[in-house]
Design a protein around this nucleic acid. Structure first.
Lengths: 343, 343
DNA sequence: CTGAAAGCGCTAACAC
DNA sequence: GTGTTAGCGCTTTCAG
């Protein structure tokens, strides 16, 4: 299979056809004001005739600032709703500035992260936002020194300094669990992600701290890790509810786990008996019976803030690194307001 | 705000430090087998010391095939689950080949489409996949002639020829509506997107054809367009159900509209009285009461097929343009199996 | 206000 | 096997 060569007109050809010089064409396409309108017209006519499109990559190669007007975002999985919403926020801000955005999925794999960062840097992106899976980011230091701008979102970097946007993981979780306690619950189960993940750790700490503050002891049998298979988790959840002194409420540390808990309660016919609050929004959560009470993150705002911090760096700002915290909102909708039905 | 200059080592510097030539360094980084292992080691050592990263954009500028190892995808809204799933499918196939992907949202705006296409072409992407909002794609012809490869997904191009992947919009809708009819429904409402959109038109045709085949007349008062505000649609839906001879079933032509219908039925307390089938998957659809019957598209498969077609072109294939159709699956789950409760 | 020459970082072509 | 020279399409610099 022969590989078809791309043939495109160059500025030189536009210059030749319009009877001007290469540099004049360059000026026209860069909107330099001091070009004779007559020449502008000639150039534009020739460009149109040849269907000329400037080659930005060639331009940025020679340009003093070296900018490619390109950023990259690296998320756990670009197809999950959280990542997809973030992505859109970056796109919107990028577009305002004529920037274009690369996206890649990390799948919780540090090797993956390294590889993608390298790939994007070899394309000379101006900035890179990461919701990291690697647990050490010192490998980015030379890149940062070389002028690449970094930002972190959802999870902070380790051994590395860059602007970061997080949400109130711990406080939001604490508030939710305190809410359950206020409704009379004493045996509250926690389902969390792999505790290696920053957000999972923080959310657990929130749960722990609310329990401690209320003088409640945590039953280790009521702690579930989401790093096992769905089936296994579903099974052990059901088991817990069929044991003596079962939990009367559940707090889930992430949206996929919330869906899992809903499924388990539904199968056990306990949906209206056991209270449930989930961290993170789930689609159609208000249409379920009962409607699901949630700790919601303002994902769009996180993206916007993070994008703005990144572009500020790209624009040359060299002030100290900042960490911004976007507040979560507790949204009672029914499932979190069920009172304990067991002693 | 001064713009910080990016300073990166070049092949020339690596050559100098390693005591070899520019070309040897190039060979090492392109894994040319015929380089003396001793020189390879020297080059690699120097590269590491300088933290050298090859500049792919400079490389593709000079390279004969001109490839940038970059593709772009243009979807309605990258944050919606359909687009996000497609996106992931392209990413996975792109990654296998060292390709990287740009993504952009069109927001049903042809001007937007033009602008983004231009932006991506100026970055010299090797291929471009569009789920189009423009109604005329003849503007792409010169680009195609110049060597850019195009693909279409979800909706076909107009006045333009390129590989296209669609799903069985019409047949899938027809099957769903026939299913409702088989359950005894005669007054079936249709909620569809703006009829300017290809998929909306096709899905309506499927509905129409099932109704016709069963000898049923379509009541225009039971046809709803999704191009109005959510509130307005919700209001007119409720009105229809409070009029004489209300619909006993609903078929919705898209996932957002399905959610809207669920909400309306819930507010009217008709969830268990009126049948509902939606086109497209909705998250947590199996957790609702009743669980929602759906016409599901195999989004990942659509993405995969489309990506493969695109890369085949990028690899030099010049055969005739193809249109591939990915079948939908009707999934009964409860809401579509409710029998008419009214005469 | 316009243009000619140089060169961004790399690969192609051809020498050695 | 290795190095030299030219040049991809553009912007910069500087002379006119």
């Amino acid at each position: 299979m022969s590989t078809s060569k791309v043939t495109r007109p160059t500025m030189r050809e536009v210059a030749a056809l319009s009877g001007t010089s290469l540099k004049t064409v360059s000026r026209v396409f860069n909107s330099v004001a001091t070009v004779d309108p007559k020449l502008v017209a000639k150039v534009e006519k020739a460009a149109k005739k040849l269907n000329y499109t400037p080659n930005m990559t060639a331009g940025s190669l020679r340009r003093t600032d070296g900018k490619t007007n390109t950023i990259a975002i690296l998320f756990e999985d670009i197809s999950n709703p959280f990542s997809a919403s973030l992505h859109r926020a970056y796109e919107d801000i990028a577009r305002e500035r004529g920037y274009v955005v690369f996206a890649g999925s990390l799948d919780e794999d540090p090797a993956h992260e390294h590889e993608l960062v390298k790939l994007f840097i070899s394309r000379r992106v101006d900035g890179l936002v990461i919701a990291p899976s690697a647990s050490d980011h010192s490998y980015l230091k030379p890149e940062q020194k070389a002028g690449v701008h970094f930002g972190f979102v959802d999870r902070p970097p380790v051994n590395f300094a860059a602007d970061t946007v997080l949400s109130t993981n711990r406080e939001g979780s604490k508030e939710a669990v305190a809410h359950l306690i206020a409704y009379g619950h004493k045996r509250i189960a926690f389902i969390g992600d792999d505790s290696k993940i920053y957000t999972a750790k923080e959310r657990f700490k929130g749960y722990e701290s609310a329990m401690k503050k209320a003088g409640l002891t945590i039953n280790k049998k009521h702690l579930f890790a989401g790093d096992q298979s769905e089936d296994a988790l579903l099974r052990s959840l059901k088991e817990a509810f069929q044991s003596p002194n079962p939990p009367t409420a559940i707090f889930t540390g992430q949206n996929v786990l919330t869906l899992l808990a809903i499924r388990a309660l539904k199968e056990l016919k306990l949906s209206n008996k056991v209270a449930l609050i989930g961290y993170d929004d789930i689609p159609a959560g208000d249409l379920l019976s009962p409607a699901i009470s949630l700790v919601r993150q303002d994902v769009a705002e996180m993206g916007r803030r993070s994008a703005e911090l990144l572009f500020r760096r790209i624009d040359g700002y060299t002030g100290p690194v900042v960490e911004e915290i976007v507040p979560t909102t507790f949204t009672p909708r029914g499932s979190g307001e069920i009172r304990p039905s067991l002693p």
